[in-house]
Design a protein around this nucleic acid. Structure first.
Length: 253
DNA sequence: ATAAATGTTAAGAA
DNA sequence: CTTCTTAACATTTA
C-alpha cells in the first residue's frame, strides 16, 4: 500500500476522530490491545505509508507492508484482525499489518516536508536531500522513504516511464533541470494516483507497471530487478535509455 | 500448487 | 563503524 492509499484510509476513518474506543480486540502481540478501551481517538495522521491513530499521549502506528489491508464497519472473511477498534459509530479492523505503539513525542521526529501527500511537502527541501545522492540509482532513490515518503514500486515505475528515465541511471547523470522535473513529477503523480484510486480507476491508468508492451512505441517491456533494493523495474529500453544523448561524448567541454 | 509481489525492520555477517 | 545479507512477517494473485 502506497502513500496515497493511506491518505484515502485516513479520510474513511475520519468519522472515528473524537470518539471513544468501546471495545478493542485483535491478535497482535506487539501492543497491549486491551489498553485502548475507554480512550478517545484525538486525531488521525499519516506520514508516507505510516497510518497514525493518535490518543492523548501515545500513538498507534500501522504499516501495511506488502499484504496489509483494512475494513471499516465490516469483517474480512476468513481472517481475524490484528487489531479491531469499535467505536459508538462503527468499527475499523486491520489485517496482516505491522502495529506499533509510539510515544506521542516520537511523531515530532517525522519530517512532513518529504511526505509526498502532505500539505507541508517542500520541493526545495527534497531537492536538497536528493543532492546528496549522486551515486544512487534512480530506482533506489525514488523508493527512499526519507526523501520520498509514501512512494512505492508503482509510483517509481510510472514516474520513471513518464520522464523517459532508465531505472538504473544514477542521479549524477541528471542535469539540475531534470532533477527538478523528477521531484516535481513524484509529487504530481502521487496526487494523480490518489484521484484515480478514489475513482477505482488506478489500475487502468498504469502505463508501465505490469505491462508487456510500451504504450509509446510497442517495444517489449523489460522486467528486471534493479538497484540495491532489488525491486522490480518495468521499463522500455527505447523510451527509457540507459545512456543519454546521441553519442556525443559527455566529457566534451 | 508454487512463486512472487503495492514493504520494512532487526539481527547477524562481512 | 558501516554496509550488506538474511529472515521474519503472512496474504493474494497469476
Amino acid at each position: 500500500m502506497e502513500g496515497p492509499s493511506i491518505v484515502i484510509l485516513a479520510e474513511e476513518a475520519k468519522k472515528f476522530v473524537g470518539k471513544c474506543v468501546m471495545q478493542s480486540t485483535g491478535s497482535t502481540k506487539l501492543v497491549d490491545v486491551t489498553s485502548f478501551r475507554g480512550r478517545t481517538l484525538t486525531r488521525i495522521r499519516t506520514w508516507g505509508k505510516h497510518f497514525l491513530l493518535c490518543f492523548d499521549k501515545d500513538v498507534i502506528k500501522i504499516h501495511f507492508l506488502m499484504f496489509g489491508s483494512y475494513r471499516i464497519d465490516e469483517d474480512k472473511p476468513g481472517a481475524p484482525p490484528r487489531l479491531c477498534l469499535r467505536f459508538p459509530n462503527g468499527r475499523i479492523s486491520f489485517y496482516s499489518c505491522s502495529i506499533r505503539m509510539l510515544d506521542k513525542s516520537a511523531t515530532q521526529t517525522y519530517d512532513w516536508r518529504v511526505d509526498l501527500m502532505s500539505r507541508a511537502w517542500d520541493e526545495q527541501h527534497v531537492l536538497q536531500a536528493v543532492a546528496h545522492e549522486n551515486n544512487t540509482e534512480l530506482c533506489d532513490l525514488l523508493l527512499d522513504q526519507n526523501i520520498f515518503a509514501g512512494a512505492g514500486n508503482i509510483i517509481k515505475n510510472e514516474v520513471l516511464f513518464r520522464l523517459g528515465l532508465h531505472p538504473e541511471r544514477t542521479l549524477k547523470s541528471l542535469a539540475a533541470s531534470s532533477r527538478q522535473l523528477l521531484v516535481g513529477e513524484m509529487r504530481r503523480y502521487s496526487k494523480q494516483f490518489y484521484r484515480w484510486k478514489k475513482k477505482y480507476v488506478l489500475r487502468k491508468h498504469w502505463q508501465m507497471y505490469g505491462k508487456k508492451l510500451c504504450p509509446n512505441c510497442g517495444t517489449k517491456v523489460v522486467l528486471k530487478k534493479t538497484g540495491k533494493l532489488d525491486r522490480r523495474s518495468f521499463f522500455c529500453p527505447i523510451c527509457q535509455p540507459l545512456r543519454t544523448g546521441t553519442g556525443v561524448s559527455k566529457s566534451r567541454r
